[in-house]
Measured scan of single mutants.
Amino acid sequence: MDETGKELVLALYDYQEKSPREVTMKKGDILTLLNSTNKDWWKVEVKITVNGKTYERQGAVPAAYVKKL
């Protein structure tokens, strides 16, 4: 869990989004888990830093590609 009490997951593999509802992640990324009720796809929040600014993006990733921490 992070400092706000939200559950975290670890990306076990790289994943490139294939639709606007998904998010890209790299192996080793730590993501915030938002919903894991679907056994195949979990909704997560990814933090992306671009030019020193951090953005948050929500989307789905394959459940088999992440592990709860």
Score class of each variant (00 low, 15 high):
Met1Lys: 14
Met1Glu: 12
Met1Tyr: 13
Met1Pro: 13
Met1Val: 13
Met1Ala: 13
Asp2Lys: 12
Asp2Thr: 13
Asp2Ser: 13
Asp2Gln: 14
Asp2Trp: 14
Asp2Ile: 13
Glu3His: 14
Glu3Lys: 13
Glu3Trp: 12
Thr4Lys: 13
Thr4Asn: 11
Thr4Ala: 12
Thr4Phe: 11
Thr4Gly: 13
Thr4Arg: 12
Thr4Tyr: 12
Gly5Asn: 12
Gly5Val: 13
Gly5Tyr: 12
Gly5Leu: 12
Gly5Ala: 13
Lys6Val: 12
Lys6Glu: 09
Lys6Arg: 14
Lys6Gly: 10
Lys6Asp: 08
Lys6Cys: 14
Lys6Tyr: 13
Glu7Ile: 14
Glu7Leu: 10
Glu7Cys: 15
Glu7Gln: 13
Glu7Met: 13
Glu7Asn: 10
Leu8Glu: 06
Leu8Met: 10
Val9Cys: 13
Val9Met: 03
Leu10Ile: 15
Leu10Phe: 08
Leu10Trp: 07
Leu10Val: 15
Leu10Ala: 03
Leu10Lys: 07
Ala11Phe: 03
Ala11Pro: 01
Ala11Glu: 04
Ala11Met: 03
Ala11Arg: 01
Ala11Trp: 04
Leu12Gln: 02
Leu12Gly: 00
Leu12Cys: 12
Leu12Ile: 08
Leu12Asn: 01
Tyr13Lys: 12
Tyr13Glu: 09
Tyr13Leu: 09
Tyr13Trp: 09
Tyr13Phe: 13
Asp14Leu: 04
Asp14Pro: 04
Asp14Val: 05
Asp14Ala: 06
Asp14Gln: 04
Tyr15Asn: 01
Tyr15Ser: 01
Tyr15Cys: 07
Gln16Thr: 14
Gln16Asp: 13
Gln16Leu: 11
Gln16Phe: 14
Gln16Lys: 11
Gln16Cys: 13
Gln16Pro: 04
Glu17Val: 05
Glu17Cys: 13
Glu17Ser: 15
Glu17Ala: 15
Lys18Tyr: 03
Lys18Cys: 13
Lys18Ser: 08
Lys18Gln: 14
Lys18Val: 07
Ser19Ile: 04
Ser19Val: 02
Ser19Leu: 05
Ser19Gly: 11
Pro20Asp: 11
Pro20Gln: 09
Pro20Leu: 09
Pro20Asn: 10
Pro20Arg: 08
Pro20Ser: 12
Pro20Met: 08
Pro20Ala: 09
Arg21Thr: 14
Arg21Lys: 13
Arg21Val: 11
Arg21Pro: 05
Glu22Thr: 06
Glu22Val: 04
Glu22Ile: 02
Glu22Pro: 03
Glu22Tyr: 04
Glu22Cys: 07
Val23Cys: 08
Val23Leu: 11
Val23Ser: 01
Val23Met: 08
Thr24Arg: 05
Thr24Asn: 04
Thr24Glu: 02
Met25Asp: 00
Met25Leu: 08
Met25Arg: 01
Met25Cys: 06
Lys26Phe: 09
Lys26Ser: 08
Lys26Ile: 07
Lys26Pro: 01
Lys26Asn: 07
Lys26Val: 07
Lys26Trp: 07
Lys27Ala: 12
Lys27Gly: 04
Lys27Asp: 02
Lys27Ile: 05
Lys27Thr: 06
Gly28Arg: 03
Gly28Cys: 08
Gly28Gln: 01
Asp29Asn: 06
Asp29Cys: 07
Asp29Glu: 08
Asp29Thr: 05
Asp29Gly: 01
Asp29Arg: 03
Asp29Gln: 11
Ile30Glu: 00
Ile30Arg: 05
Ile30His: 02
Ile30Met: 05
Ile30Trp: 04
Ile30Thr: 03
Leu31His: 00
Leu31Tyr: 09
Leu31Asn: 00
Leu31Ser: 00
Thr32Asp: 04
Thr32Asn: 06
Thr32Tyr: 09
Leu33Ala: 01
Leu33Ser: 00
Leu33Asp: 00
Leu33Met: 02
Leu33Cys: 06
Leu34Phe: 02
Leu34Asp: 01
Leu34Val: 12
Leu34Ala: 01
Asn35Val: 06
Asn35Trp: 05
Asn35Leu: 06
Asn35His: 08
Asn35Met: 07
Ser36Ile: 07
Ser36Asp: 15
Ser36Tyr: 07
Ser36Glu: 15
Ser36Ala: 12
Thr37Arg: 08
Thr37Lys: 10
Thr37Met: 10
Thr37Val: 08
Thr37Gln: 12
Asn38Ser: 09
Asn38Lys: 06
Asn38Ile: 04
Asn38His: 10
Asn38Met: 07
Asn38Val: 04
Asn38Gln: 09
Lys39Glu: 10
Lys39Cys: 12
Lys39Ser: 11
Asp40Cys: 14
Asp40Val: 12
Asp40Phe: 15
Asp40Met: 11
Asp40Ala: 08
Asp40Ile: 14
Asp40Ser: 10
Asp40Gln: 10
Trp41His: 01
Trp41Pro: 00
Trp41Cys: 07
Trp41Glu: 02
Trp41Arg: 01
Trp41Ser: 00
Trp42Gln: 00
Trp42Asp: 00
Trp42Met: 01
Lys43Asp: 14
Lys43Asn: 11
Lys43Glu: 15
Lys43Arg: 13
Lys43Tyr: 15
Lys43Gln: 15
Val44Arg: 00
Val44Thr: 00
Val44Leu: 01
Val44Gln: 00
Val46Gly: 04
Val46Phe: 07
Val46Ala: 09
Val46Leu: 12
Val46Lys: 13
Val46His: 08
Val46Cys: 10
Lys47Tyr: 10
Lys47Cys: 12
Lys47Glu: 08
Lys47Trp: 08
Lys47Ile: 13
Ile48Pro: 00
Ile48Gln: 07
Thr49Arg: 08
Thr49Asp: 07
Thr49Pro: 01
Thr49Cys: 15
Val50Cys: 12
Val50Phe: 09
Val50Leu: 12
Val50Asn: 07
Asn51Glu: 11
Asn51Leu: 08
Asn51Trp: 05
Asn51Thr: 05
Gly52Gln: 05
Gly52Ile: 03
Gly52Thr: 03
Gly52Ala: 05
Gly52Val: 03
Gly52Tyr: 06
Lys53Glu: 12
Lys53His: 12
Lys53Leu: 13
Thr54Ala: 07
Thr54Arg: 06
Thr54Asp: 09
Thr54Lys: 07
Thr54Glu: 11
Thr54Asn: 07
Thr54Trp: 08
Tyr55Asp: 05
Tyr55Trp: 10
Tyr55Met: 10
Glu56Gln: 14
Glu56Leu: 15
Glu56Arg: 15
Glu56Gly: 11
Arg57Ile: 09
Arg57Val: 08
Arg57Asp: 03
Arg57Ser: 05
Arg57Glu: 02
Gln58Gly: 03
Gln58Cys: 12
Gln58His: 07
Gln58Leu: 06
Gln58Asp: 05
Gln58Thr: 10
Gln58Ser: 11
Gly59Gln: 01
Gly59Arg: 01
Gly59Val: 06
Gly59Leu: 08
Ala60Asp: 15
Ala60Pro: 02
Ala60Thr: 14
Ala60Lys: 13
Ala60Met: 15
Ala60Cys: 15
Ala60Glu: 15
Val61Cys: 07
Val61Arg: 00
Pro62Arg: 04
Pro62Tyr: 05
Pro62Asn: 03
Pro62Phe: 06
Ala63Arg: 07
Ala63Asp: 03
Ala64Thr: 11
Ala64Val: 08
Ala64Ser: 14
Ala64Asp: 09
Ala64Lys: 12
Ala64Phe: 08
Ala64Tyr: 08
Ala64Pro: 06
Ala64His: 12
Tyr65Glu: 03
Tyr65Pro: 04
Tyr65Val: 06
Tyr65Gly: 05
Val66Trp: 03
Val66His: 02
Lys67Pro: 03
Lys67Leu: 11
Lys67Phe: 08
Lys68Leu: 14
Lys68Gly: 03
Lys68Gln: 06
Lys68Met: 09
Lys68Ala: 07
Lys68Asp: 03
Leu69Pro: 02
Leu69Phe: 08
Leu69Asn: 02
Leu69Glu: 02
